[in-house]
Amino acid sequence: MFAEQLVNGLVLGSVYALIAVGFALQFSILRIINLAYGETMMASAFVGYLVLTHTGLGHVAAALAAIAAGAATGLLLERFTLRYVRGGDELTPLMITIGVATLLTSVFSMMFGFEQRAFPRHYTGGILTIGEIQITLVQLSIFLIAIVTMVSLHLVLRRTRFGRAIRATADREHIAAAFGVNVRLIRVVAIGLSSGLGGLAGILIAENFGVVSPFIGTTFGLKALVVLIIGGAASLSGAVAGGLFLGMLEVMSSAYFLSEYRDAISYSILIIVLAIWPRGFVPNAVLR
């Protein structure tokens, strides 16, 4: 049913947009492509999973735990690795994040095995019906959380003094410092914030699909990249639009054709876009 796929596409797309926004935030401030971002999401999802399966606390607690785990992962990554290679070439941080990504994947697969695990579903049984379209409460929650988060972030960046400080740091770090911005603090906040967003996205994905696996990190990391590069060149809203677009594309193509090639299509788009616009990608434009 088309309407159903539309809803699925929007929900998935909203999460992809969230991933892209977090990823873009990190990229603008750190100036690196953090290939461990997907794995941060995966680790956070597992933390949420553990909260749900080992404690009596509910989904909200799990989500908060996931956000905290994400933020912690990002902060540790910056503090103990990336900080030491600041100002160097651009391949070095890439290699570090590749290493960390692999580390996380292998550690989590040793802890949890290679199989996917079922992520406990939220059984409120609520279904919203608009005309012919049925939206589950879970889907609605995911969509709303993603949208609200992105809007809030947008408002913070655009309307607050602190948000301006973040954008100024992303634009020209040393000049921002010359006008009183505590750049180090901004970096830490930006990384914590963006990784926390990643953690949120991770658990939202787990809620959406009902599974967690140690190997989803690479997949989602690459998707974040695709969204960023497709939409990020324009603006923050571009990243959002890119995310929605990718979500729709994947759901539609899964439902109607070529479901196995879904990922290949995303990656091919990535290569094509990069090939045509190698530098068309302005990092701090994303924060507007």
Binding site: R161, R164, R167, A168, D171, R172, V181, N284
Partner: peptide, 15 residues
């Protein structure tokens, strides 16, 4: 700050 507006640049000056 090229990605910020003129006014925002001034606001950064007044940070």
């Amino acid at each position: 700050f090229a990605s910020m507006t003129v006014r925002e640049n001034l606001e950064m000056g007044a940070y």
